[in-house]
Design a protein around this nucleic acid. Structure first.
Lengths: 138, 138
DNA sequence: TTGCATCCGGTACCCAGGTCCGGGTTCATC
DNA sequence: GATGAACCCGGACCTGGGTACCGGATGCAA
């Protein structure tokens, strides 16, 4: 198959394929005599694996490493170890968002409708000082 | 106070203050005769409000609008309404991350250690096809 | 063989939310 | 009055994950 067909089959933009190749996430495919990329049918699976791993929270660089590890069978930086780390990240993120949700709910319950007032009055449940310091929401 | 003092007091980079001003999130302050920004002590609170709102999941543009609404007291696009929308977003995000977490846990439980194998065997619990299609993890 | 879809490589651009740079003032202190 | 820190502005740069555009080459079918 050609690049456009692969893209269509995996549901991604054709440019994305070239981009993944540049990033080292997809291996360079064979070429036609004229220089066009030629893919085996398995390429669709590989591309889907990349997309799935992304959905599990891995960055493209991490996906690249995970696939490379798979190829050279190095043990202790394998999927298990990485997935454990990623799980911790994801759980931390969930905890963070849960705090945010609780604060939003509290603000709604109290009927807060003006951030200025909230910040300068005592009764608002939003913990402005704590919130100002750490991390981000997205 | 001057820009550097405000930045230090609120725990942000001095450049961030100029950036927020450019973005319309902070109002333009008075200037010294020589053109330096001069802030009242309340500016620290205002800056902390911005940071807190960001932590609650609002983008800078949303924060800008929220503060503007506060100033002109327009009713139904106030904090209440926006917070309700934001709450839905945050809960959707949590649900999404929870699915991701469940998949990671399942992959760990099954002892998966190679994405290639997982994708081509039947026993792996990672739903590659479903995962390939939607949204992102961060 | 002609016509048109597709592909090529390289580069620029997009989003958010900042941060850094550099050359030129201004402010506060000695 | 001189010195050095702080500040000014505009624009470039950063991360991450792509997307868009370009002029030119290739692939394939009628």
């Amino acid at each position: 198959m050609r690049a456009g067909e692969l893209a269509a089959a995996a549901g991604v933009n054709r440019e994305t394929i070239r981009y993944y190749e540049r990033r080292g996430v997809l291996q360079r495919p064979d070429r036609s005599p004229g220089g066009h990329r030629v893919y085996a049918p398995e390429a669709v699976t590989r591309l889907r694996v990349v997309k799935a791993a992304q959905r599990l929270g891995f960055t493209l660089d991490e996906v690249r490493d995970l696939l490379a590890v798979g190829r050279r069978r190095g043990r202790d930086d394998g999927l298990q170890a990485r997935a454990r780390e990623k799980l911790e990240e994801v759980e931390a993120r969930i905890a963070d968002l849960t705090t945010i949700r609780d604060n939003l709910v509290a603000a709604l319950d109290m009927g807060c409708d003006d951030l200025h007032q909230c910040a300068t009055s005592e009764c608002c449940p939003i913990p402005f000082v704590d919130l100002a310091s750490v991390g981000s929401a997205r």
